[in-house]
């Protein structure tokens, strides 16, 4: 098990190194010089050159890459070209919105998907199953921003239970902050829950056809006992894979929902930074997201091994 973890850890480090190279050079290739962009089209060439020197843009690519990576390793993400504030601070502020939102949405999605998927699998082909499958079909089909607007209409405008947008801030207390994240989290969670429920159901149905489920029944377990004791854990591998993918998506892909609810999250930060050619911010946020995605995959890999003993002995 330890060797498995070490091996996955090594692969994590290699992935990060490769990702940092790719991100840096792809963004360097992108057209548009940040210095001339910041100073506008009428700027004197001398001023632009001075600003380039100040921003460190006149250094060689390799120097800048090493400086960037070295800085990140020590927690210094550099200065934003446009806002002139440390990138680390900007990201940290946004992270406090995006990360709780992603976790909140994923928790909701899992809480909805597990019971729905298990319920449908246990009643395969019966009305209950068809109802759940119909609902998930709808959940997959409806775009989350449309859903977000409907939620705002009902719960913010008509019922006035929640605010229509904005983030209260953690300094206003945990309850207030969570309350302002609730509608966005639901809007994000429902389509994900629909996908997860379908995966859960089909994974369980595959397992229900396995020989060892019949063995369990031959021992005297009821259908329900066999499903819970032998089916669920075996069905977890595909489900964990999807959960991992969904978390990565929720962290970075919430940009539309952040726009709908005026949330100061990472998605909006990247969007603004790209528009302003604030390359250092873009690079850092993207790198951070890559780090998050790879780390989540690492955790999912470890979870696989916890679920399935066959993976522990394999290298």
């Amino acid at each position: 098990m330890l060797r498995y973890a070490l091996k996955r850890g090594l692969s994590l480090a290699i992935s990060l190194a490769v990702a940092s190279l790719v991100i840096f050079f792809v963004i360097e290739i992108a057209p548009g010089d940040p210095a001339s962009f910041m100073l506008g089209i009428n700027a004197e060439p001398d001023t632009v050159a001075a600003l380039r020197t100040e921003l460190g843009l006149d250094q060689s690519k390799l120097q800048r890459y090493l400086g960037w990576v070295g800085g990140m390793l020590s927690g210094d993400f550099g200065m934003s070209y446009t806002y002139r504030t440390p990138v680390a601070e900007m990201i940290a502020d946004r992270m406090w919105v995006s990360l709780p939102l992603a976790i909140y949405a994923l928790t909701l999605s899992t809480l909805i998907a597990f019971p729905a998927g298990i319920y449908a699998a246990a009643r395969r082909g019966k009305p209950g199953d068809m109802a759940v499958m119909g609902a998930t079909q709808l959940g997959v089909a409806v775009p989350n921003f449309w859903f977000a607007m409907i939620l705002v209409l009902i719960f913010a405008i008509n019922l006035r239970w929640f605010g229509a947008g904005g983030f209260a801030g953690w300094d206003k207390g945990f309850g207030a902050a969570m309350k302002s994240l609730t509608l966005p989290a639901i809007a994000l969670a429902l389509p994900q829950a629909a996908i997860l429920a379908r995966v859960m159901r089909s994974a369980l149905l595959d397992i229900l056809g396995e020989d060892f489920m019949r063995t369990a029944r031959a021992k005297g377990l009821t259908r329900r006992q066999a499903l819970w004791r032998h089916g669920l854990r075996n069905a977890m591998i595909p489900v964990l894979t999807i959960i991992g993918l969904q978390f990565s998506f929720l962290l970075a892909g919430a940009i539309i929902i952040e726009q709908v609810f005026f949330l100061p999250g990472l998605g909006r930060l990247v969007f603004q930074a790209i528009s302003a050619r604030d390359l250092i911010v873009v690079e850092s946020v993207v790198m951070l997201l890559v780090f998050a995605v790879i780390s989540v995959n690492f955790l999912v890999d470890l979870a696989y091994a916890l679920v399935d003993p066959r993976l522990r002995s394999r290298t």
Binding site: D211, R214, T215, A216, R217, G220, H230, D308, P309
Partner: peptide, 25 residues
């Protein structure tokens, strides 16, 4: 429910495919 009480207790069963008849986890 009564059959669940019989299976495993009064009637045991051995299957064809030992490779898949046991829960791998």
């Amino acid at each position: 429910a009564q059959m669940c009480g019989m299976r495993g207790k009064n009637i045991g069963m051995v299957f064809q495919e030992p490779m898949t008849a046991l829960n791998p986890v």
